[in-house]
Design a protein around this nucleic acid. Structure first.
Ligand SMILES: Nc1nc2c(ncn2[C@H]2C[C@H](O)[C@@H](COP(=O)(O)OP(=O)(O)OP(=O)(O)O)O2)c(=O)[nH]1
Ligand SMILES: [Mg+2]
Ligand SMILES: [Mg+2]
Ligand SMILES: [Zn+2]
Length: 572
DNA sequence: GCCGTTTTCGGCCCGACTGTTTTCAGTCG
């Protein structure tokens, strides 16, 4: 099951690959690849963007690609792709997914041996015919056979949260080496993308030999993909790929800039350098032979008359222009958070008691903390009925009165939005809560129109403060349900409802693109952990990462405000 | 196909590693 964005990206990707293979034009396929990347990292429903007629506002999408996308959304058809597939009947997506196999190899294999898919390639590799092709020796064939297996296993991306744990292990192993002066995680992990394709690690060191040796010799390494003097790659037993780049001190800033990406951000920056008669690469910024900058990443941006761009924004979505104008946002930082407005206890499906959760919140020096267990229709989560909710309200009153905690404990609930958009708890009881979060937990496959009406209706309930995980996505598992977010935003604005940024590493919902649109639509955001245990309170960090990717500032986020201001802002 | 304080035409980022190759094309970052 794919989201529309993923479908559209795949269409563009496949056209790009087929054009690559035809080899007629070097640059046209690049445009399709760039378009595919742009849609993949859009972080907003492409259907919505198309409906607003704003596809060509996306960098890399022009009239041509916009037409293909619109047509695909409206009819499900892509004549250009059908035509290409007829001319070049190759399953490019699966063949080119093999490491080491690119367009030239696919074309050669097709022309000489009629290879069109993994199966026919495997046969040719096994019966010896493949190694007869020019440029393909026994080593290549062996690598291809291994590659076929990996493709069949299905290469998934990895959740940022999981990847960062793995990164820390590798970083600490390498940091222990005496010749290592600096070491940084770069790539999409440094940009805090919610999922990463691999880990990219940059080292500043004098002695590259020992570094590379240690790196490829790490216990978790399953396969060494490349080993050079400045760059090596391995695949771990977990199948996660790690790229290591070693760069000398005087180039470390340029190396970090390069290795952080994104590709499109890099290409744009390098083009700007070019136009200024300069050259930017991972070793520095050069005027002719002379290195102008390189040690400090910041100085490279400043050389272009830009302010330093926070890695989370480096996606070529307007950040370069904003850096030139000096109008980059002052992004939210973790220390600005004053409380968590969505947490669970063992009253519903949480693991810890209410007191354990409050103690943990106190340790995090919060000023307020909302307990918001599930309500009755979520039976699978042991949701509370009115009676239990009322008892909970009284309990929190007593806890606040006890004076055991400096922090204010807010009375909340995560109330289920029913099939008809009504809530499963009476207004009477809702009125006694400080914070009401309304969430969809059922019937997520209903049509877009139904889902939109359902959510909008719930937001019109005058006791609802926050819409919980507004699109219901589960990363690597379930795409967002279909919903017209612009309509939701409009109703939310009218009714003073806040959008949640659910900080669970598998949700991060709203995502970056939608956060940006929500704020543009005049809404505020609550960054909430939805913690089901004490440990999960630390997921706030991932929420802040995503908020930064959504260009959010402190003021956009409701739980950076003091208790007093918070309560005033949520008032209907 | 995209895009614009050097252009609406004519450019399009730049470098490392591998294999099989006699000097580099292909692939990947
Ligand atoms: N200038 C330039 N830099 C590139 C290119 N490809 C990759 N890079 C840089 C920017 C990337 O962020 C960085 C790491 O490459 P990756 O392929 O791992 O991409 P990234 O980490 O951004 O995304 P990922 O989550 O791994 O798919 O290397 C390129 O074609 N040109
Ligand atoms: Mg990467
Ligand atoms: Mg990489
Ligand atoms: Zn919840």
């Amino acid at each position: 099951m794919l989201s529309k964005n993923a479908e559209v990206a795949q269409v563009l990707e496949e056209i790009g690959l087929l054009l690559d293979i035809e080899g007629k034009d070097r640059f046209r396929p690049l445009a399709y690849h760039r378009g595919a990347r742009a849609i993949k990292s859009l972080g907003e429903d492409v259907v919505e963007v198309a409906r607003r007629n704003e596809l060509t506002k996306i960098p890399g999408i022009g009239k041509g690609l916009a037409k293909i996308i619109t047509n695909y959304i409206e009819t499900g058809q892509v004549p250009k792709l059908d035509e290409l597939r007829t001319r070049v009947p190759i399953k490019v997506m699966e063949l080119m997914a093999i490491r080491g196999v690119g367009p030239r190899t696919v074309k050669l294999m097709y022309d000489k041996l009629g290879i069109t898919d993994l199966e026919s390639l495997e046969r040719a590799a096994s019966d010896g015919s493949l190694s007869q092709l020019p440029g393909l020796g026994d080593r290549s064939v062996k690598q291809i056979l291994q590659g076929i297996e990996l493709v069949r296993q299905g290469l998934e991306r990895t959740l940022l949260a999981d990847a960062l744990i793995e990164a820390e292990k590798i970083v600490s192993a390498l940091r222990a080496l005496p010749s290592v002066r600096q070491i940084e995680v770069a790539g999409s992990a440094r940009r805090r993308r919610e999922t990463v394709g691999d880990l990219d690690i940059l080292v500043n060191a004098s002695d590259t030999e020992t570094i590379m040796g240690t790196f490829v010799g790490l216990e978790s390494v399953a396969e060494v993909l490349a080993r050079g003097t400045t760059k090596s790659s391995v695949r771990l037993t977990s199948n996660l790929q790690i790229d290591l780049r070693v760069i000398p001190a005087e180039s470390f800033g340029a190396g970090l800039q390069y290795f952080t990406g994104s590709v499109d951000h890099n290409v744009k920056l390098r083009s700007i350098a070019q136009k200024m008669g300069l050259k930017l690469n991972e070793y520095g910024l050069f005027r002719g032979e002379e290195k102008v900058e390189g040690r400090e990443e910041r100085a490279i941006y400043e050389s272009f008359g830009m302010t330093w761009v926070p890695p989370e924004l480096r996606e070529d979505r307007g950040e370069i222009e904003a850096a030139q104008d000096g109008t980059l946002p002052d992004l939210i930082t973790p220390d600005a958070v004053r409380g968590d407005l969505h947490t669970h206890t063992d009253q519903s499906d949480g693991r810890n008691t209410i007191e354990e959760m409050i103690d943990a919140a106190q340790e995090r020096e919060y000023e307020y903390f909302c307990i918001s267990d599930h309500t009755k229709s979520l039976t699978i989560a042991n949701g509370m009925d009115e009676e239990r909710l009322e008892a909970r309200i009284n309990e929190i009153d007593r806890l606040n009165e006890s004076g055991r905690w400096k922090m204010r404990i807010l009375k909340g609930a995560e109330v289920d939005i029913l099939q008809d958009g009504e809530l499963d708890i009476s207004d009477d009881l809702l009125s006694r809560l400080d914070i009401v979060t309304a969430s969809i937990h059922s019937r997520m496959n209903d049509s877009k129109r139904v889902m939109t009406e359902r959510v909008c209706h719930a937001l019109e309930n005058k006791f609802v403060h926050i819409l919980g995980h507004p699109t219901g996505r589960l990363l690597l598992k379930r795409p967002p349900f279909e919903i017209d977010l612009s309509a939701v935003f409009e109703v939310a604005r009218k009714n003073n409802v806040i959008m949640e940024l659910n900080a669970h590493p598998q949700r991060l919902d709203l995502n970056a693109g939608n956060l940006r649109s929500a704020v543009r639509a005049g809404l505020r955001i609550a960054v909430n952990t939805d913690a089901h245990s004490v440990a999960e309170l630390d997921n706030m960090t991932f929420g802040i990462y995503q908020a930064r990717r959504g260009w959010l500032t402190k003021d956009d986020i409701i739980n950076t405000h003091t208790l007093k201001k918070l309560l005033r802002l949520i008032k209907k």
